[in-house]
Amino acid sequence: MATGDMPSDGVAGRQALLRLMAWLSPAFPVGGFSYSAGFESAIVEDHVRDGDGVEAWLLTLLSAGGMRNDAILLGEAHRLQSEGQPLEDLISLATALAGSAERHAEMTRLGEAFVQAAAAWPHPVIERLQGPIAYSVAVGAVAAAHGVAKDDAIAAFLHAQISQYISVAIRLGVIGQSRGVAILAVAEQPILAAATELSPLGLDDLGSATIIAETLSMRHETQYSRLFQS
């Protein structure tokens, strides 16, 4: 079938995929390369020493930590936007869940930068996302507004988050690029499983069991020598 003969839903689906790829690309101007969500402290304080440590740390955050909560918040934002419901309460809750001043600054700066950049694809949702807003909420609402499926948005978001953590580990010299790619490959199935599991969850399912990671995020605020802002 020629490209011009493709059904409109197929074209729309590919368009949504391209937008999702653009929004969560490392080249998208949100400044994510400046932040580590406390992972720098985990490395500096010797909690993570090698590739196996990086892999275990990230899979734990995915299953029981901050990444899990971010995915749930993204899914809730997607649902509210899809149903035409207000986003204000979710925006307030998501920013209040930040465990430290650095994490609050990180999530809101990324969120605001994402909204500003996503305005290149005009949509009324942009006007609903003004002011401090958590990155995950911004991604969820914009994805829903442009017809990106919730499961796809969650999976792509988690993939981008893990990729960012891997980039931190590479830049801090814990692993090389080959090991980083290998970790990303190992994370593929857990990411897909998490997207399926977390997509139907709601705010009552928020919670984490990664106390050390949360504490390290706070300790980063007073860390003497830092490459990252969080």
Rank of each mutant, 00 (worst) to 15 (best):
D70P: 00
G51S: 07
G75H: 03
H47F: 15
A42I: 13
F39Y: 14
L74S: 02
M67P: 00
D46Y: 08
L61F: 08
R68Q: 09
A56N: 05
D50E: 11
L59D: 09
D46Q: 14
V48I: 13
G38M: 09
L61M: 14
A71Y: 07
G38F: 12
G65Y: 09
R68P: 01
I43A: 07
G66K: 08
H78G: 03
G38L: 11
V44I: 15
A42P: 01
D50Y: 07
T60I: 11
A64I: 09
M67D: 09
G75N: 02
W57R: 00
E76A: 05
R68N: 05
S63I: 14
L58P: 00
G38W: 05
F39K: 05
E76I: 02
L61N: 11
S41D: 13
H78S: 11
E76F: 02
D50A: 11
A77N: 04
I43L: 15
M67W: 15
E40L: 15
G66H: 13
N69T: 11
E55H: 03
V48P: 01
H47R: 05
V48A: 01
L59P: 02
S41K: 02
G51Q: 05
V54S: 00
T60S: 12
A56G: 05
A71R: 03
E40T: 13
A71K: 01
V54C: 08
E45D: 13
L73H: 02
D46R: 12
G75D: 07
G75M: 06
M67Q: 10
I43N: 02
M67G: 06
E55L: 03
D52I: 00
L62S: 05
R49A: 11
A64S: 14
N69W: 13
D50F: 10
E76Y: 04
E55F: 00
H78D: 09
E45Y: 10
L61R: 02
D50C: 08
D70I: 04
L58D: 00
I43V: 15
H47L: 15
A64N: 11
R49T: 14
F39D: 04
G65D: 08
V48L: 04
G38T: 10
F39R: 06
A64P: 03
R49G: 04
V48Q: 01
G53R: 01
W57P: 00
A77E: 07
F39G: 03
D70W: 07
V48S: 00
G51K: 02
L73I: 09
G38E: 07
R68K: 13
A77P: 04
L59C: 06
D52T: 05
G66C: 14
D50Q: 05
G75W: 03
D50I: 12
S63W: 15
G65N: 09
D50G: 08
G75P: 03
A37L: 11
G53F: 04
G51I: 03
L74R: 02
G66S: 14
